[in-house]
């Protein structure tokens, strides 16, 4: 293949999330150049370095300030509830389901992003399973009743409220101390990110009911994409497809690693903790389905509207009920 000299500019994700150093940076700065004999190169910076909060990435891509960029779907769920579609709380307990859901809903999101932001969706990927970290005993879902729970997005808030919990919003950086001091009783985040942020030091019980996968997307400003040579476009499409598979496998590995580290099991990259891993009761899995149907989906339908809900039912809904 013949690749013209091309320099890509990439806004990567959070430097603190393992995926940035392990996967994003090598992909853009090593793999692409080595596949193209050094003709396609890229510079990448993390959100932290730019002092960004995440949500503005979509808009900055729309303006053309950023060409290639990544951001969490949840950050712009306010702009359009469709962003919640592939990650409604409680719909995918395991990563295989999450992947199927993600693939099924991808065309809908690609269309939305092109219309709304003028950006081309390149891939959808998870961080890891989002679970409950509590600083006191919790045996089942019903124990959330009356507890103050920090939630990171609306659909998890709906789920927690459905279970009778009190939802609290606060910056990620304040969660550790708030858990330690009892400002809140539980908080939801990924198994690995909670472990790397030291949540296992301030909580005692890890309740592993997965209420989401915190999906991210990689996209590119459509005009910037048009300017690329067809060979480079083809290369990027193919390589990002492979990358997507890798990131999903890495998500599964990180989920397991984080869970194991926090609860005193085998631990290589994380920090070993001594939390109690609460076994997931069969009754809770059933109660979860009820909450998903009665609360999570009902509220999502309200936010999202009829057409959006119909599309969701055809894609994700059909898949979930088939399971």
């Amino acid at each position: 293949q013949d690749y013209p000299k091309t320099e890509l500019s990439v806004q990567g994700g959070w430097a603190t999330a393992g995926i940035y150093q392990e996967i994003e940076v090598p992909f853009w700065t090593e793999r692409l150049p080595s596949l193209t004999g050094g003709n396609v190169t890229a510079s990448i910076t993390s959100l932290n370095e730019k002092g960004l909060k995440g949500p503005e990435v979509f808009r900055l891509m729309r303006m053309g300030v950023i060409d290639f960029g990544t951001s969490a779907l949840g950050y712009v769920a306010g702009d359009d509830p469709q962003n919640e579609g592939p990650d409604l709380a409680g719909i995918a307990l395991d990563i295989e389901t999450a992947r199927k859901v993600s693939d099924a809903y991808k065309p809908a999101l690609a269309k939305l992003y092109m219309e709304k932001y003028g950006i081309k969706l390149l891939m959808l990927y998870p961080t890891e399973a989002q679970v409950f970290w509590c600083n006191g005993p919790i045996e089942s879902l019903s124990d959330l009743r009356g507890k103050k729970v920090r939630t990171g997005n609306r659909t998890v808030a709906d789920f927690v409220e459905g279970a009778g919990g009190v939802t609290v919003t606060m910056p990620f950086g304040e969660v550790v101390t708030s858990l330690q001091l009892g400002v809140i009783d539980c908080a939801v985040t990924g198994t690995f990110s909670g472990n790397s942020a030291g949540w296992h030091e301030v909580t005692t019980h890890l309740y592993p009911l997965t209420v989401g996968w915190s999906p991210f997307m990689y996209a590119v400003n459509a005009k910037a994409w048009e300017k690329l040579a067809p060979s480079v476009q083809a290369l990027l499409t193919e390589e990002m497809g492979k990358l997507e598979d890798e990131v999903w496998s890495a998500g599964a590995a990180r989920t397991a690693e984080g869970l194991s580290c926090a609860t005193g099991g085998e631990c290589i990259f994380g920090k070993k903790g001594a939390m109690t891993l609460v076994p997931l009761a069969e009754a809770d899995v059933e109660l979860r389905s009820k909450l998903v149907n009665d609360v999570v989906l009902a509220r999502f339908a309200q936010r999202c509207g009829d057409a959006c809900m119909a599309e969701w039912n055809e894609t994700v809904g059909a898949l979930i009920s088939a399971d």
């Binding site: 960004l52 909060k53 503005e56 808009r59 303006m63 053309g64 300030v65 910056p171």
Partner: peptide, 20 residues
Amino acid sequence: DMPLWRALGEVSWGAFTEFT
């Protein structure tokens, strides 16, 4: 050549609304 200056609006709205 990148129009980085066009980020000023987004960056400053982010700073102005930082609850902390």
